[in-house]
Every structure is written in structure tokens, then in C-alpha cells.
Design a binder for these strands. Structure first.
Length: 736
RNA sequence: GGACUCGUAGCUCAGCGGUUUAGAGCAUCUGAUUUACAUUCAGAGGGUCAGAGGUUCAAAUCCUCUCGAGUCCACCA
């Protein structure tokens, strides 16, 4: 054994061995308890960041349950990450002086596919470097043919049950990125938006968006507002920039009489509140801004101007015409922006596919309330329920090429949509050839929402017992004969572990869609971890320059050090502060583990000889073999065994209640400051003089602790284990 | 406006199903070593546990309020 633990010489080789010997392979074993986790699939084309390294929490659970003797599955995969990936790719194109408009749909898809495949291997190698006990043979990609087939079946099932519908509605649309989003993708930013008070027929009203006035189809006031009561139901004539026009005055509770002048113009095509108002009052919708972000032909001389340009010009013209009363320049409001490019989003009316959330969310809520799905830390239960109560219908259409194309077809003859999971040869509606597939792709989260069951349903694993083989199950839609025994054994999965930041995006939707598709919750437990911050508790970001690359840490200090730095002293579910110093501290810990082993091994492997003894004893105090001391040593041994017993009991309790940080802290404290600093120091001379009893006790307690530490620091623990138990042994075939 | 998290040693944080002198890592200071490990060991300094009430024999821990930091959500036109 080297005097120093050198992870660089051990980790890669050891991981390869684990993989080759099949320690990570899951099978169907009805004699064992199944324990399964589906890895939250990283983007296929990106490198891992520290957030991904937090999957170490999952590896801890996986390895711990392996040690408990469960049949364990940790299933890896990658996500195509639709719009995200296309956005990255477009930036890449920009560097070459090109844009997405230089390609037709098919060739754009093809070059993005190639781009993704070129960048794909990195992520998997990085997960290996972190030591994750993933069952690589079962990895899936969200665009695998069989996965897509399942996504399509679910979509059809939702549609058949009236839970998917197509409707023209206001959606958040980024005119730069060229796609719509769901509510969740919108980032609201506080901005200074001058509030313009303008003359509007007999009224004065306040607006931040004068350029939308061409799309106004009514004026609304509060029904209780005495000032305007007499106008309700009447029609007014308004002098505008492009001539006179007439509008109805309606009343609606949503209007706050105290805001502005208490009169609001209604622009149903370009404002969410107004859209709702228009539905309540049956108002016409008039779109004056196009998907290119420019004003359209309904705006007269303003046609062709971008929204911001138009606003400036319209304000000038209003001034000239004497229609502008005043401007509140310092007015602040919140504006929806694109989460990728940061530009202001435009609410625009568009026909899209929506998932009807209410029935799905209600069922999901029941599962959570009845603890069919448990969530840790507990406080997130309330947050999850809040989301399930407040979700609105989910727009799943994206105008992005890189994605899973929606299997919806439009019959040109009957002007109707139909859904087919398999590309149809003929129109389902009229039997003819005249139909066209929807150009749009699914929101990535629509496929992610199906990840747990989709990945398990597409495994070709057959049960080892003949009973299961003879009972080949066929899917309800009978598209593909499928062996469901693997799915049945591992689903619902045991734990879904991910960051709390994607609770509504992913976790909630997996519950809703997973339960809909399978009649079971996709997982029994949810465990949420926090976000990683820098050593001053600040968010890591490229612009701040405080980003730490996890792979650098692995190269410098070893995967074990990085892993334990992410766990040690961090409260589950809370953000944690991370620094290189912390990794160094944990590297010292791995070295300590190594050296404790080295000490025991050195004495263990060398049978004490007289000359050796003489060499050692010379210069020391020479009192070790006297009888009173011997019995004192025996007391020490008993004390050690007692202390270890308590430690292990506490450890199991902590591990079982997901308090990994405390479990690691416990073993850290015990092994370093009790076992090494105290017990080894006490027994050192004894051991060197060949006290077999003392050595045996130290060895046993140490090896037990190695097993306990293995989930946290798999490399060094197994490396030392092999020294003691032989090259062909591994903690991975041990039991706690 | 709603919800949540946090305010504990110089810094970053544990501890919070209540109980002896409140902990860790890093940092600081003093000392040790022909050594399993200097990626080490022994020891020291450093905290009225944000503040104020309350419950209790007993509170950093439970309850209420106040102040401060941060996060998420919400149709202020």
C-alpha cells in the first residue's frame, strides 16, 4: 500500500471492474426486494455540472440498498432536451454565420442529431468517473424509437379520453426563438414601463402598451364604479391614430377602480387578462401583432414596425394629436420574458395542443395527500400540493424542429385533426391521402413526464423463472408484443431523487402522467436535494466566474472526495455551499481511511519476529507486556466494540430515514477521531507487539466501517477492501 | 399579496422527536513526530445560538411577535 491514497491510479480501473463483473446489473429476482431509481436524464449534448454530481445522493441509496441485500436498479438515460438543445445549437450555428432559417426542417433535424451524437459520450463517461452504480446496459434516450412509441400512445390515450385538446388561445410566444411556451417557462422580470394616460373617447385610460390599441375590442370598468356606471352597455366612439372607431363598454369585477383611471382597454389577442375578460363577455379577438414580432396590416402606417419601434412612434403621434394626457415614467411592472434568450415574450393567439390538467392534478393530489407518494423533506409536500392546485392547462406544442414530432394529422378534406401513434398510410377520418402532420414537436417535459414508466417498459429483460416467461404480456394497444415482467417488478420505482427547482416542471407532471398511463404512481418516494452555491453562499454562474467543474475536482482529488464534499455537513433539501477547500478536506478524509487500513494491514501481514520486535521496542517504554496493562487493554477492546455497536445502530437509523449527511458525519467522527485518534493510539504498541486479539478487533471494526462508508466513498473503501480480502473480492458482494 | 428557507465561532454550515461545559470543516495561535497518515497528532483562543415575549423543572431546539437575508409563486391594465 502506498503511504498516500492515490485515486488517479485506482478509480478508473476499479469502475471498469465493477461494470465488467456486472455488479450494477439488475435482474428480476422475486426472492429479493426490488429497489429502483430512474436517473434524472441529463441533456444528451451537455457536459455535467455540479448539479448533476448531486446524483451522488442516488448512488448512496443505490449502494446502501445493495448492501442491505435488495435487488437494485439504477437506470441511466439521456434527454434530447428539445428547445434547450436547439437553442445551444443555434448559437453554434451563429458562430459559423448561419441560422436555423438556412435549413429546411429535415436537414436541420439531421444536423442537430449529428451534433447531439457527437457530444453524447462525454456525459456518460463523466457519470462513470463519479462512480455511479448505473446499469448501463439499460440506458435509454428520449428519442429512442420505442420510447417515442410510448409517448405517442400516451398522447393518443389522453386525446381519446378528452384530456388533450387543440384550441386557439393566448400563448407566451418568443418572437426571436420562434416558439411558444408553457406557463412555467416564463420568467417574470420587474421592468420600468412608462404608464401612458391617453384620451379614449369620453374616457382617459392608462396603458403600458399603447401599440396594442389597434387590437382593442372593448373598454371595461368595474360594475361598482359610480363614475362610469352610466356608460356600461353603451357604445363609445374613439378618435384613434388611424381614424375613428366604435367600442362597447362592459363591466367586470377584475377591474380595480383605484388603478389608473379605473378604465381599461380590452385587447383580447395580446393580453392574458383581456383574453379572459373577452371570453366572459363574448368579445371579438383582433390580432395586430404577428409571430414575427411586427405590427400587421391592421395597423395602417405602423405595419412592419417591431413592437418597441411602434410604441415609440405611436406615443409621438399620440402627443401630436393631443391624445396623450400624461406619462408616469417610473412605473414598474412585471413582464414575461423568454427563459433562454431573455427577450420580452409576446402573448399571441395560437392554435396549440393543451393537456387538460384538472382531472390529472386532482388524482395526483390524492396520491400525495394519502401518502401513496411520500416526499422528503416534508415541507415540500405543501409546495407540491400548491402546484397541483394551481396548474393551468398545459401547452405542449412547440414550434421547434428538435423534438418529438406530434403524431397529429390534419385531414384536408374534413378539416379535422386525428391522432395516430404509428404514421398512417391513409387518413383515419376520410380514408384518403390528403392529410398533413402537425409541424410542431412536444414540449420536452411531455416526454420527461413519462420517463419512469417508458424506460422500464422498453427493457428486454426476461424473468429468470419460467412462470414469467410463459406469461408474455401484450400491451393494451397491441402495437408491440412486450414483456412487461421487468416493468412489473420494478414499477412503481422506489425513489425519485432530483433538485427541488424542478418540482413543478418534472416531478408533479410525472405523477400526473405516470398515474394516468399506468394506473400507479411512478414512484413511492420523492427525495429533493438543494442547489449548490459557492463558498459565500452565492449562486454559481458563468458571469460571476465562480463555477466549479466537477471533473476538475475528480481529477485533482478523486471522486470520493468530491462526493463526500457534496454530502458532508449539508442539510437534506437545503442549498449547500461548496468550495474546493471542502473537497480538499474530504480528500484528507479519504486518505485517512486509506491509512487506517494501511496501519492495520502492515501489522496484519507481517508476522512479528524477534528481530522486528526488538527493533520496535528499542527506545520505547518497554512496559507493554506487564499484566495490569493487558487487562486494561482488554477493557479498551470491549469499549471499542460497544462504541462501534452504537455507531452502527445510529448509522442504520440515519440511512433509513434519508439523513445521509448525518450518517456520513457519524462515521467520519467515529473512524477518524475515535477509532484512529483514540483506539489505535491506545492499542498501537500492543498491536505492534503481536497482540492478535487487539488486531482482530481493530480489523473487524474497520472493515465493517468500510462497508458503511462504501455508499459515500465507493472507490477508496473497495480499494482497501481488496487489500484485505483479495483482488477478486468487493464490498459490492457484501452485506451490511 | 401568498408560500417557503435561513439568521449559531473570523468564514461556510451541522445540531432543533428539549436535559450535563453548544459542534464540524476551513482559518488563527502553541506544541509534537527517525511516523499508518504533515493530506498527521495533542492542545488553545473564539459564540449572551438575530431580538423580545411565552410554554417547561429544563429551550439554539416547541409556540407567538419583531427585525434582517434569500428563494419560489401571483392576470398591477
Amino acid at each position: 500500500m502506498d503511504p498516500k491514497y492515490q485515486p488517479q491510479q485506482i478509480e478508473e480501473k476499479l469502475y471498469r471492474e465493477w461494470e465488467e463483473k456486472g455488479y450494477f446489473k439488475a435482474n428480476i429476482n422475486k426472492k429479493k426486494k426490488p429497489f429502483s431509481i430512474i436517473l434524472p436524464p441529463p441533456n444528451a449534448n451537455a457536459d455535467l455540472h455540479l448539479g448533476h454530481a448531486m446524483y451522488v445522493v442516488e448512488d448512496i441509496m443505490i449502494r446502501y440498498h445493495k448492501l442491505l441485500g435488495d435487488e437494485v436498479l439504477w437506470l441511466p438515460g439521456a434527454d434530447h432536451a428539445g428547445f434547450e438543445t436547439q437553442f445551444v445549437f443555434e448559437n453554434h450555428l451563429k458562430k459559423e454565420g448561419k441560422s436555423r432559417f438556412d435549413f429546411d426542417r429535415d436537414s436541420l433535424f439531421k444536423i442537430i442529431w449529428e451534433f447531439v451524437w457527437q457530444n453524447r459520450g462525454n456525459m456518460e463517461d463523466q457519470l462513470r468517473k463519479l462512480g455511479f452504480a448505473l446499469d448501463w446496459g439499460k440506458k435509454k434516450f428520449s428519442m429512442d424509437e420505442d420510447i417515442v412509441k410510448i409517448i405517442y400512445q400516451t398522447f393518443k390515450k389522453l386525446h381519446d379520453q378528452g384530456l388533450v385538446y387543440r384550441e386557439k388561445r393566448l400563448v407566451n410566444y418568443c418572437t426571436f426563438c420562434g416558439t411558444s411556451f408553457s406557463d412555467l417557462e416564463v420568467i417574470y422580470k420587474e421592468k420600468i414601463s412608462p404608464l401612458y394616460y391617453m384620451k379614449y373617447g369620453p374616457f382617459t385610460l392608462a396603458t403600458t402598451r399603447p401599440e396594442t390599441k389597434f387590437g382593442d375590442t372593448a373598454v371595461v370598468v368595474n360594475p361598482k364604479d359610480k363614475r362610469y356606471k352610466k356608460w356600461i352597455g353603451k357604445e363609445i366612439e374613439v378618435e384613434g391614430l388611424t381614424g375613428k372607431f366604435k367600442l362597447k363598454v362592459v363591466s367586470d369585477e377584475s377591474v380595480d377602480p383605484k388603478f389608473g383611471t379605473g378604465v381599461v382597454k380590452v385587447t383580447p389577442a395580446h393580453d392574458f387578462t383581456d383574453f379572459e375578460t373577452s371570453r366572459r363577455h363574448n368579445l371579438e379577438m383582433k390580432q395586430v401583432i404577428g409571430f414575427d414580432g411586427k405590427l400587421n396590416e391592421l395597423t395602417g402606417i405602423y405595419q412592419g414596425l417591431y413592437v418597441n419601434q411602434a410604441r415609440t412612434k405611436i406615443v409621438e403621434d399620440l402627443k401630436k394629436k393631443g391624445l396623450l394626457v400624461k406619462i408616469k415614467e417610473d412605473y414598474k411592472n412585471r413582464v414575461g420574458t423568454c427563459y433562454k434568450c431573455g427577450r420580452v415574450l409576446e402573448p399571441l393567439p395560437k392554435e396549440q395542443w393543451f393537456v387538460k390538467i384538472r382531472p390529472l392534478a386532482d388524482k395526483a393530489k390524492k396520491l400525495v395527500n394519502e401518502e401513496k407518494i411520500k416526499i422528503y423533506p416534508r415541507r415540500f409536500k405543501k409546495i407540491l400540493i400548491w402546484w397541483l392546485d394551481n396548474f393551468r392547462d398545459w401547452n405542449i406544442s412547440r414550434q421547434v424542429v428538435w423534438g418529438i414530432r406530434i403524431p397529429a394529422y390534419f385531414c384536408q378534406l374534413k378539416k379535422q385533426w386525428f391522432i395516430e401513434p404509428i404514421p398512417p398510410k391513409r387518413c383515419t377520418i376520410c380514408g384518403g391521402q390528403d392529410f398533413k402532420q402537425d409541424e410542431d414537436t412536444f414540449d420536452t417535459w411531455f416526454s420527461s413526464a413519462q420517463w419512469p414508466f417508458a424506460t422500464l417498459m422498453t427493457q428486454n429483460v426476461i424473468a429468470s423463472d419460467s412462470e414469467a416467461i410463459s406469461k408474455k404480456e401484450i400491451t393494451s394497444s397491441s402495437l408491440t408484443p412486450r414483456n412487461d415482467s421487468f416493468f412489473n417488478y420494478f414499477y412503481p420505482t422506489t425513489v425519485m431523487e432530483t433538485g427541488y427547482d424542478i418540482l413543478p416542471w418534472w416531478v408533479a407532471r410525472m405523477i400526473m402522467i405516470g398515474y394516468f398511463a399506468t394506473g400507479k404512481p411512478p414512484f413511492k418516494n420523492i427525495f429533493l436535494h438543494g442547489l449548490i452555491r459557492d463558498k459565500d453562499g452565492k449562486k454559481m454562474s458563468k458571469s460571476k466566474g465562480n463555477v466549479i467543474n466537477p471533473m476538475d475536482m475528480v481529477d485533482k482529488y478523486g471522486a470520493d472526495a468530491l462526493r463526500s464534499a457534496l454530502i458532508f455537513g449539508a442539510k437534506e433539501g437545503n442549498d449547500l455551499s461548496f468550495s474546493e477547500e471542502k473537497v480538499i478536506g474530504m480528500r484528507n478524509f479519504t486518505n485517512k481511511i486509506w491509512n487506517i487500513g494501511r496501519f492495520i494491514w502492515m501489522n496484519h501481514s507481517v508476522i512479528p519476529t524477534k528481530s522486528r520486535l526488538a527493533g520496535r521496542v528499542e527506545g520505547s517504554k518497554q512496559k507493554d507486556s506487564s499484566t495490569p496493562l493487558r487487562s486494561a487493554r482488554n477493557d479498551t477492546l470491549r469499549q471499542l466494540q460497544k462504541e462501534f455497536k452504537e455507531e452502527k445502530k445510529k448509522y442504520l437509523k440515519l440511512m433509513d430515514s434519508y439523513r445521509f449527511s448525518q450518517a456520513l458525519g457519524l462515521v467520519y467522527e467515529f473512524l477518524w477521531h475515535r477509532f484512529a485518534d483514540y483506539y489505535i493510539e491506545q492499542l498501537k504498541d500492543e498491536v505492534i507487539h503481536g497482540n492478535i486479539e487487539a488486531l482482530k478487533t481493530l480489523r473487524e471494526v474497520y472493515l465493517e466501517n468500510l462497508k458503511m462508508l462504501h455508499p459515500f466513498i465507493p472507490f477508496v473503501s473497495d480499494a482497501v477492501w481488496k487489500v484485505f480480502k483479495g483482488e477478486r473480492s468487493s464490498i459490492l458482494s457484501e452485506k451490511l
